[in-house]
Design a protein around this nucleic acid. Structure first.
Length: 214
DNA sequence: ATCCCGAGGG
DNA sequence: CCCTCTGGAT
């Protein structure tokens, strides 16, 4: 496993991320907590661009669990057919909407346990909603964060929870809030999975990737 | 560990 | 063609 970078190195890395993008936002379109939850649930193994294309028309008409139930599973399936895993996702979103109406007054719950009890909502999706909407200090570790954390030495770990903890323990407090989005953006546009663009990487001199592979 | 699944990129 | 994309449930 890659070694853990030192505190001052990680501080410098995030200072550079901040200089490039001072207020990083998620790139999943949404208009409220419910549509955020649905968009994140739909984004599993899919690109944000693909999800946004499908939810643009959907969220214009459907922005509450009640309206989602009125649309129905078949109607929802038509909207999201272009997204991977669409059958399971349609079924989960309809079941989830029913639970929100039945048990949470049509609102999105703000506790991790309640969120993760919803069908199709696991640790990662719950963390995104908790941090993005409810401003809780939760670190969502997805494929990008996991890859970048391990490659660079910012947050190495064998599994998601180890990487989560490494971020909590080693990313300086002032950068915690936006760490998730900075790591996502870095992973999406520079530290890409297949062929990382080290030639244009702003943190190349601090990263452990080439040291490890060469 | 495996399944679910389509779109886009290389 | 093959791989990857802000995973979750079994």
């Amino acid at each position: 496993m890659v070694r853990q970078l030192a505190y001052h190195e990680i501080h410098e890395i995030f200072a550079r991320f901040q200089a490039v993008e001072p207020e990083p936002k998620g790139e999943l379109d949404h208009v409220n907590a419910f549509t955020l939850l649905v968009a994140v649930a739909l984004s599993a193994q899919a690109t944000d661009a693909g999800v946004n294309k499908a939810t643009r028309a959907l969220f214009a008409a459907v922005d509450t669990p009640q309206k989602m139930l009125a649309l129905g599973e078949e109607g929802l399936t038509e909207h999201i057919r272009t997204i991977g895993l669409y059958r399971q996702k349609a079924r989960n979103v309809i079941r989830l909407s029913q639970i929100l109406v039945d048990s949470y007054g049509g609102e999105v719950p703000s506790s991790r346990a309640a969120l993760q009890s919803l069908p199709g909502v696991g640790r990662k999706t719950a963390n995104v909603v908790l941090s993005m909407w409810f401003h809780h200090p939760a670190q969502a570790v997805d494929t990008h964060v996991f890859r970048v954390g391990n490659r660079t030495g910012i947050a190495p770990g064998r599994d998601v929870e180890q990487v989560e903890r490494a971020i909590e323990d080693h990313v300086p407090a002032p950068f915690q809030k936006h760490a998730h989005h900075w790591l996502i953006l870095h992973g999406r546009y520079i530290c890409v999975a297949r062929k990382p663009k080290c030639g244009i990487c702003p943190i190349r001199d601090l990263c452990l990737y080439e040291e490890k592979t060469l």
